[in-house]
Design a protein around this nucleic acid. Sequence first.
DNA 1: GCGCCATGTATAG
DNA 2: TATACCTGGCGCA
Length: 276
Amino acid sequence: MPEGHTLARIAHGLRTAFADRPVRVSSPQGRFAAEAALLDRSVLTGAESAGKHLFIEFVEAQVVHVHLGLIGGFEIRSGPPPDPVGQVRLRLVGGGPRAAAYADLRGATRCQLVTPDERAAVVARLGPDPLRSDADPQRAWLRIRNRPRPIGEQLMDQQVLAGVGNVYRAEVLFRQRIHPRRTSIRRGQFQAIWADLVELMAEGVRTGRIDTVRPEHTPQAMGRDPRVDDHGGEVYVYRRHGQPCLVCGSLVCTELLAGRKSYWCPRCQRAPRALG
DNA sequence: GCGCCATGTATAG
DNA sequence: TATACCTGGCGCA
């Protein structure tokens, strides 16, 4: 379940559980075993996310670069570690006897030791991250303005915006009433998208979920039976293909865009004229 | 139990 | 553009 907010939460969780103390590092599954042995018992100094990337920092500028891909997960729990379940690529165990904690990484597409230069190169390739207070949205806007591609494609491009995935793409475009295949959006529209992402993703970091439905559109507020929506009303269009729009009742559409299913409401998000 | 799909990306053609 | 990779949950027998 990894969009940018998930990685930010993981980074925070790792800092809280392990920072400034030696940790046991292992790879029960084996694919990270040699590197884990090098890091074992060294002090974990920090953890930081950049978009959907995670960097776990150890003493002496040793950094583990993690990318969860589509299906990876990093589970952080308090208490003593149980026997590993499934394919645990990386396990961290720390804390004293009074505050034991462990973290298990599974299914990641990337987990490797990197140099500071390699880390910097990864970050340099990313567009501004709405979760970072020092992000410069102007960089994203210039890129979007100069390359007339569908906005639904641009939002998924990590070189344009870092941390946005398929859920936030669908939801922010719905909230801003912009069709995913619209090209050449106006500056004001981009500013609204950015501001909305800043708010939605920060909320995602706080709650660990993606909730995008405004209070006035919840099933209760609309006088609708909450049970009709199997997502519990937290999203407007994501994965709601063929179901009625929470605002106007039109059936939600879907189409492949940038290799992923894009969702939109045909009435609330007017199609660009070029599409007929 | 099986097959499909998934909040992602890299690489081949 | 298509496919490979990684794991878990779901719908459907």
